[in-house]
């Protein structure tokens, strides 16, 4: 899955630590998501979307082969 979390975070002028604190996960988790190394749970995906006031599908996109 690809995502635009880093772009949304940069637009919001937030650090990874700020976003991590906002959605109650570790900074490493945010870093892993942004590097496409970890796909978050649905719950966390919705939390991120709520935080950035956008839709989950604005943040996450399924990779097609």
């Amino acid at each position: 899955m690809k995502n635009r979390v880093r772009a949304y975070r940069n637009d919001a002028d937030m650090s990874q630590a700020d976003l991590a604190a906002a959605v109650d996960v570790s900074r490493q988790t945010i870093n892993s998501i942004e590097r496409d190394r970890y796909d978050p749970s649905l719950e966390l995906a919705f939390k991120l979307a709520d935080h950035f006031d956008c839709l989950v599908e604005d943040l996450f996109e399924r990779e097609t082969d």
């Binding site: 109650d24 996960v25 570790s26 988790t29 892993s32 970890y38 978050p40 749970s41 719950e43 966390l44």
Partner: peptide, 10 residues
């Protein structure tokens, strides 16, 4: 409720 998050559990 903070020592492990969902990535740690995964």
């Amino acid at each position: 409720d903070a020592i492990m998050d969902e990535r740690d559990r995964a």
